[in-house]
Design a protein around this nucleic acid. Structure first.
Lengths: 151, 151
DNA sequence: ATTGAAAATCTCACACA
DNA sequence: TGTGTGAGATTTTCAAT
């Protein structure tokens, strides 16, 4: 789907505060409230917008430990296998297949290092996982456009 | 701030759909709409919730290329130097100092591989950067709780 | 895309445990 | 401190234009 300038400004407004009223957004972009709603509905239907969510402070929710885990898979493992295997973990925030030596890069939030260790052991025990390689986040210096944590 | 079970369930509900009505959330967690709003307001005031945002499909906004870049810094580089040096790039979404061989892990969104290459060259040219090592995202299989892209 | 009206929701006051 | 109830203000939502 192709977004025009008006759509982009609406998405930008929603990105800053997804609970702003359509009328508010409308006055900012020069549209009436129903017009804004129609465009948002269209963006939702087309998949350009996939939903609305909350920005949380992971530390405030008790998820103080963040890590990136490289996954090295056994032969004949497809993206679907990786997703199905990892989506079950509530501690897993993002999963991406990547170029390079590893097959996938996984972002994990845990309450502490002990918790992370348990999660890592379970992930490493998945049948499609050959080995893993993790780095722990020391300081989340910048979290732009995104922030989230499992519940 | 300490969150109890009710708060966590409310945050979880908002993470799935931040535009659900307080009454809906209330019936799910066993509270009235005003009670839910009061807790959300408190979570906002305490900083546990930092706002509401929209989940977008980066590709629909024209940001089709995502990459993770490991930064190896010169000696005597502090976290502040890394943050100041990288925050200027609008393509940089997240910056974290990490354990392991690299000093920092940076998430970058670009419109295409050519765009990413230009950004990478500029980052690699920063005075505190000794070398970089990148992996490109092939498929963003899972983007839980939020996903965003630079505007 | 806008207008205007009806339905739903938000948001506050107050009362209660 | 935290909750529920009810009323008024606001917003959403859908016709008709």
């Amino acid at each position: 789907m192709r977004l025009n300038d008006l759509d982009e400004r609406i998405v930008h407004a929603l990105a800053e505060d997804a609970r702003r009223s359509y009328a508010d957004i409308g006055t900012q972009v020069g549209l009436s409230a129903p017009a804004v709603k129609r465009r948002v509905d269209r963006l939702l239907a087309s998949g350009a917008i996939t939903g609305f969510t909350v920005r949380v402070d992971p530390a405030a929710l008790g998820w103080e430990t963040e890590a990136f885990v490289e996954i090295y898979c056994r032969r004949n493992t497809g993206p679907g296998d990786i997703l199905r295997g990892l989506a079950r973990y509530s501690e897993v925030a993002t999963v991406s297949t990547v170029t390079g030596e590893a097959d996938a890069l996984v972002q994990v939030f845990a309450s502490d290092v002990r918790h992370f260790e348990r999660v890592l052991e379970r992930i490493a025990g998945e049948p499609f996982v050959e080995r893993t390689k993790s780095v722990l986040v020391l300081s989340p210096l910048l979290r732009r456009y995104t922030s989230g944590s499992p519940t």
